[in-house]
Design a binder for these strands. Structure first.
Lengths: 324, 324
DNA sequence: TAATTTTGCGGGCAAATACTCACAAAACGC
DNA sequence: GCGTTTTGTGAGTATTTGCCCGCAAAATTA
């Protein structure tokens, strides 16, 4: 809070460069200038102007939103809402070339998150983990909302103590100024007893209470098998995965493994998972963010078992969900 | 809800064309495809793909938002807040080539409107008229918010009964599904007596009551003289304008003409203006949307007189306001 | 301080995009 | 049903943009 010399504009650090980038991006995307014009107006070379514009893009200063109800997507969302017990459902177009891509889903999810974050009343917003969720966070604008609490549903430590890459809360803290509560816990405890001990720690207990009262929850959905996030990221071994599959496991949300009707698998990893218990709230939104052929079965289980009551996915995945 | 052959994509009416445009725009801006790839994916020629993308832009399906606090603008906004009695103030960059342009202001204003429209509690939102306001409405996404009421602060009829081009409420009704109340009134009555009669009509009376209770108000600011909107659009004659200027008039908001300290001019057009009375609320936001060298004096008057307590303008105008 | 690495810049060029034009199909009016 | 207008299409072309490269300034290290 000391004096700052923002007038000078000569303290050529990252900030003033991003500032220029924002200006260039503004002139390009909002005012519709050509990069040549921008170069002249900002007094730099055309190439530099180009660099500034592309910097504005890569730094996600420019956010593009598409605002048209694409009939096919609306229709699919409608059908999904009819078929499954869903409060809300959003379907975004797929890129036919990379139908499993989370491009687009991230934007849609971010826009939904933003809606909640913009609310004036204090809210507790809970987050799972995963690639899609993490990509969504990256799409959030910087916001100031001290009234909210952002809480993690699960730890991000490997059993050896190293941190997983997909912890969304930390990322989120960079962008959104709200109270945030990362879960200082491994994904799996080494024994039921250890899990109990961990959960009874004062701060962890607090966070679990917060999570239970979450006003809105965003989670990813993990599949089983060779491509399972749990396996790929090294949280469960090949043998454990095989045992889970043999026990009828079909998917996983915040590392809680469930079967084809969304019923939790007894024993195995579920005895050790340290994540907050799954809350099946009928009224508070619990929104799954997921897409891809591989996740269809897992998503079906979560929907049937009402583990989630909201869904953000893409066209192709929506079609596959309805085809079953 | 009958069977539809949406896969075929051959029911070629306007809707499906915009749909295609949205899809193309999505693939281009969100998924980052080249127009060539889009052409192949949608099965059209590259030129058609280009047309679809540019259609998506001209139809305002793609909305670009810039999300970086440009230091200079923040600083100007801060200073304006310090100098004038403003609750809120936003300054957007100017395009150095066309500093009077409302490009950018419209986007910022739209985003502010959207913020209010997204609120869950029912709100009454009041609107004046003007080019900037109208351009802002065009930047709004389509929204569904039946909980709100959108009310016009003034009529849009010329004295001969023809409609002015800048009625924002009608435009708004296209985009935002809320209850809307256009004011079925001319801008000026022909006598004080007629004004009284008009205002006592049941529907008009209702709307005036709504306007009085507005939770948030957006207005434009008009200057006096040869370029005055009131004169250019033919609501007042050259002679009347001269009389106003002679009486010390400096600006106008919803056709209420005021002097350099924001005090209403006695008599003249103010005896006849049929707009809702100006409410000087200390707590409910009344936001002026205006920019341009010509409007600086008018804006200063409105600020001094606390006719507005919020401001959205651009860099250049902000500088001029502070220079006085 | 000198050597080395890093970073940013402008020139040039290939790719991508926007625009113009002539033409054809659909919509419209009579 | 026939001419007229409107709307959309593809080809060609000018403009704009993205990217690679060598160079020089700045930062880093020894």
């Amino acid at each position: 809070m000391t004096g700052r010399d923002s007038m000078a504009g000569k303290n050529d650090n990252d900030v003033s460069r991003l500032d220029e980038a924002a200006r260039a991006g503004w002139l390009y995307y909002v005012a519709g200038n050509t990069q040549d014009e921008i170069a002249r107006k900002l007094g730099v070379s055309r190439q530099s102007a180009q660099r500034l514009v592309s910097l504005a893009v890569t730094e996600r200063l420019v956010k593009v939103r598409l605002d048209h109800p694409i009939a096919r997507c609306m229709e699919l969302a409608q059908k999904l809402r009819e078929r499954f017990p869903l409060q809300s459902c959003e379907v975004v177009p797929s890129d036919p070339a990379t139908p499993a891509s989370i491009v687009g889903i991230a934007q849609a999810a971010a826009s939904e998150m933003e809606r909640h974050l913009k609310s004036q009343e204090p809210k507790i917003i809970a987050f799972g983990t995963g690639r899609a969720l993490r990509a969504s966070i990256d799409q959030l604008p910087t916001m100031d909302c001290p009234q909210h609490k952002v809480v993690s549903l699960l730890g991000n430590m490997m059993s050896d103590g190293s941190a997983s890459a997909y912890n969304v809360i930390i990322r989120m803290a960079d962008r959104v100024n709200a109270r945030h509560y990362p879960m200082p816990l491994p994904v799996f405890a080494r024994s039921k007893r250890e899990r109990e001990l961990l959960h009874n720690q004062e701060p962890v207990h607090n966070i679990l209470e917060l999570a239970k009262d979450a006003d809105v929850t965003f989670v990813g959905v993990g599949n089983m098998g060779e491509t399972a996030p749990l396996f790929v990221d090294g949280f469960v071994s090949r043998d454990e995965m095989a045992a889970l599959t043999a026990a009828g496991a079909i998917g996983e949300i915040t590392s809680w493994v469930y079967g084809r009707d969304g019923d939790l698998i007894e024993g195995l990893t579920n005895d050790l998972v340290a994540s907050a218990p799954l809350a099946r709230s009928p009224d508070k939104p619990i929104i799954a963010i997921a897409a891809g052929e591989a996740k269809v079965d897992a998503m079906l289980g979560a929907l049937r078992g009402r583990i989630v009551n909201g869904l953000i996915t893409n066209e192709l995945t929506a079609e596959r969900l309805l085809a079953r």
